[in-house]
Design a protein around this nucleic acid. Structure first.
Length: 800
RNA sequence: GCGCCCGUGGCGGAACUGGCAGACGCGCCGGAUUUAGGAUCCGGUCCGAAAGGGUGCAGGUUCAAGUCCUGUCGGGCGCACCA
């Protein structure tokens, strides 16, 4: 065996570590490159193959950039707050601190076996008190700037985890951790006012290089819509019910209103509502439903018509009924809607079921059959009649509402404020004190970190209170403001807190005066390239942009957006084409592959198996192909002689250098590796190469398969590490052949190929094509109608 | 419902701004070597005997379409009674 990976891989891993080969340097005169990958949660199960693919992309790019002469920062840390560790603690009584340290150690050891070029001197752990001190510090800064508030509202609550969830953590009405149905529960909740940053988060997307689908997903998640707030007066009482609508142009078609069952106005006028008992019954039914059931689109509309309380259509003056129904959500808009059954599918369905009038105001459909949501001429609409342009009608109506003082233009967002507290032990304590005199008082900055107390019971309480609530020595404290007796907040922060700013800490990981030195921030930020999973697009990626933008607004960081460029890797599916899972039994353990074939083969195969951004199934035979490739590369030292250049392979090398260089930058790793395989096949045909050529070859190979590359480099007498040598350059002129083969078509059909000089112009190319015997024969007796020549590409002769 | 993406050999996948479809790898077929198996090496491999035909299907634009346009079928992802 030429490729003794079992010996050489540990050998080079040790040498890199001893030399600190991949530590980011202090030389700020060099151009910098900050490559970031999403840091892992150190679960007890250790690394899986998805981690390897997630890190391999920027691993290759970082290695190339080092060879390009950049000062590269490519760190990895651990996002260690999470329920699995806590659940493990509950089950086994092993303290989360102990379990976390153990898991981090295991993870680190596994990563090193893959040969990743992370700067391990900068590793961080979000549960380390030297780290979470600064998480708490940022929280207090937000508090100071009015971005933190507490509210008792209906929140997403997971009855199984006994924990409050943010909107982002309960997508589809399921708990993100345990997949249980989320219920709505009234609770005191800490919120971060992320909605205040909605516009900034949207606007920031114009200045970053993210894939279009990621931008689209974030835009969609933020969900900005433009419309109008309109006041509807209630008949007989001095009260207005404000609604939000995106279609103020259809106001003349409003025939009823609908409120969310929880709407507070109902309680205020319960004496007037003669069927309030029905209302309460309906509310009870709704409360029993899970969030998932309630938001099922296709379920039948239900509701209650209020007796004794009606509203007035503000443009027609007509009296209209009010309903309550759970298809209107308290959490969006104002919790009440105007219903235009003729032009809204949900209102149409409801009106049909409850026998309410349907008035057409936009022509174009058949409202006896279905709601018409398209554009058309306005009818039955007073001053809007005859208008055909929706934007016009909306503008006119808003103008009217504002003049009359009954409404105004407005915007709404689907994104909600971030429910920020969890009733859990293993998280950052929220540094707030509740004082009976002063109210909510922040813990003074100099007292940070507010440490997690030692507990013996990690379970949350039955009523959903934090385990910290049972620790009197933690709870009871003095108010920092007035010195009187006070109680600490006992909830902790969600797992997304620590990860919302971790990329800043890598820059200056051991600083205990500031979260990172401003000069270093100025040098290293923003992150040049951030790679991660699609599952974080509407969670971590939004949250961290929000925190960073806040820090920018208060002058703590130098640029408004944290990540210049974002990419996302695709999944590695099991050999059966299904998502890998233990229950399916199709899991590939990367360490098994390392043991059997070596880390170089694993790395090469993962990047060779398909488009980096796409999901692709694992194939054991494909791994063997990559092993063969590296075996054959190892054998090249036997035929590499001399240092002079030979003409035979010269152009092949220049072409390959060019291809691999650009393919790596485009994350087209599969074709970069294919190009190296092609070059290897070419070397095989020639039968020999020079030592210099082989050095070039291993430089190109080293980002993918660094161990074998170092080994060959050393054998050839290369100085230092190939990983830190210069990236090869190429001569553009030598990347094209002096003679090229071009296709000749007759009337669009391929009839042959001819060799022409690379610099042949139109006439010369055409002449050569026509003189080709096969072409000449095919043209015999035909009339040439048109001759198309694209020099260097193709000749097409249209003939009859 | 809204938004985004994808349909190419037996398989994973290549194909720059429209310009020789199927690079590279796997698998398969034949041969060499081997006691055998494995490994390795050499040759072949889109379909078709050929003329020809081929990128989910049907049209269109163009000298030329996997690539652009229209429609349609199939698959995937995200959000979702969002007013």
């Amino acid at each position: 065996m030429n490729h003794d990976f079992k010996t050489i891989e540990p050998k080079w891993q040790q040498k890199w570590e001893e030399a600190g080969a991949f530590h980011a340097g202090d030389d700020r005169s060099k151009p910098k490159f900050y490559a970031l990958v999403e840091f892992p949660y150190p679960s007890g199960a250790g690394m899986h193959i998805g981690h390897v693919k997630a890190y391999a992309g920027l691993e290759v790019i970082s290695r190339k950039r080092r060879m390009d002469g950049y000062n590269v920062l490519f760190p990895l840390g651990f996002d260690a707050i999470g329920l699995p560790t806590e659940n493990y603690a509950i089950k086994t009584h092993v303290h989360p601190r102990v379990a976390t340290d153990r898991n981090i150690e295991k993870f680190t050891m596994q990563m090193k076996k893959i040969g990743f070029s992370f700067d391990w001197s900068r590793t961080i752990d979000t549960t380390d008190e030297g780290y979470y001190k600064w998480t708490q510090w940022i929280f207090l800064k937000m508090f100071e700037h009015g971005l933190v508030f507490r509210d008792k509202t209906l929140v997403n609550y997971c009855p199984s985890c006994k924990v409050v969830l943010s909107n982002e953590d309960s997508q589809g009405g399921k708990c993100d951790v345990c997949k249980s149905d989320v219920v709505q529960k009234s609770k005191d909740v800490w919120y971060l006012r992320i909605t205040e940053y909605a516009d900034k988060l949207l606007e920031g997307l114009d200045h970053v290089d993210y894939p279009a689908n990621i931008k689209a997903q974030q835009v969609n998640w933020i969900g900005k819509s433009r419309g109008a707030f309109v006041d509807f007066s209630l008949s007989g009482i001095d009260e207005k019910l404000t609604i939000y609508t995106t279609r103020p142009d259809t106001l003349f078609g409003v025939t009823f209103m609908v409120m969310a069952p929880e709407h507070p106005v109902l309680d205020k006028y319960k004496d007037r509502i003669s069927n309030f008992d029905e209302v309460e019954k309906y509310r009870a039914e709704c409360a029993k439903k899970t969030e998932f059931e309630r938001t099922q689109v296709n379920k039948d509309k239900t509701g209650v018509r209020l007796s004794g309380l009606t509203a007035r259509n503000p443009v027609t003056g007509g009296d209209i009924p009010i309903f309550i129904s759970d298809y209107v959500m308290m959490g969006y808009g104002t919790g009440a809607i105007m219903a235009v059954p003729a032009h809204d599918e949900r209102d149409y369905e409801f009106a049909r079921k409850f026998g309410v009038d349907i008035i057409e105001v936009v022509k174009g459909g058949d409202i006896s059959e279905a709601a018409y949501t398209g554009d058309g001429e306005m009818v039955n609409s007073g001053f809007l009649n005859g208008l055909c342009n929706k934007a016009d009608s909306i503008a006119r109506m808003i103008d009217h509402l504002e003049k009359e003082g009954i409404g105004k233009a407005g915007v709404q967002y689907k994104m909600k404020d971030w429910a920020f507290n969890r009733q859990r032990y293993w998280g950052e304590p929220i540094p707030i004190v509740h004082c009976p005199v002063c109210g909510m008082v922040p813990v003074p900055y100099e007292e940070l970190p507010l440490r997690l107390p030692e507990v013996t019971k990690f379970e949350p309480g039955e009523g959903g209170e934090s385990p910290l609530a049972a620790i009197d020595s933690f709870v009871n404290c003095k108010c920092p403001k007035c010195g009187g007796d006070a109680k600490r907040e006992t909830d902790t922060m969600p797992q997304w807190a620590g990860s919302s700013w971790y990329f800043l800490r890598y820059i200056d990981p051991r600083n205990d005066k500031v979260f990172a030195d401003p000069d270093l921030l100025k040098y290293w930020m923003p992150v040049d390239w951030y790679n991660g999973g699609m599952e974080h697009v509407t969670r971590h990626l939004i949250y961290s942009r929000f925190w960073y933008r806040f820090l920018y607004d208060i002058g703590e960081v130098p640029y408004p957006e944290p990540y210049l460029k974002r990419s996302a890797q695709g999944l590695i599916l099991g050999p059966d084409g299904e998502k890998m899972s233990k229950s399916r039994g199709n899991v590939i353990d990367p360490l098994d592959i390392v043991a059997a074939y070596g880390a170089d083969v694993l790395r090469t195969y993962i990047l060779f198996l398909g488009d980096y951004g796409a999901s692709a199934p694992w194939a054991d035979n494909g791994v063997k192909g990559c092993r063969r490739f590296l075996e054959r590369v190892a054998a090249l030292t036997d035929i590499a002689k001399g240092t002079g250049s030979t003409k035979e392979l010269e152009r092949d090398f220049h072409k390959t250098v060019k291809k691999v260089t650009s393919d790596i930058e485009d994350m087209k790793f599969n074709t970069a590796i294919a190009a190296l395989m092609t070059l290897l096949n070419r070397i095989g045909e020639v039968g020999s190469l020079t030592a210099d050529e082989l050095k070039t070859f291993v430089k190109l190979l080293s980002p993918f398969a660094p161990h074998i590359s170092e080994e060959i480099w050393e054998k050839l007498g290369g100085k230092g590490f190939v990983s830190l040598s210069g990236w090869p350059s190429y001569d553009e002129a030598l990347t094209v052949d002096s003679e090229i083969e071009i296709a000749v078509q007759i009337s669009g059909k391929l009839r042959g190929t001819v060799l022409v000089p690379a610099d042949a112009d139109r006439d010369a190319t055409l002449a050569i094509a026509k003189s080709d015997p096969k072409i000449a024969a095919a043209l015999e007796g035909k009339t040439v109608v048109k001759e198309i020549v694209v020099p260097g590409k193709i000749v097409n002769i249209v003939a009859k």
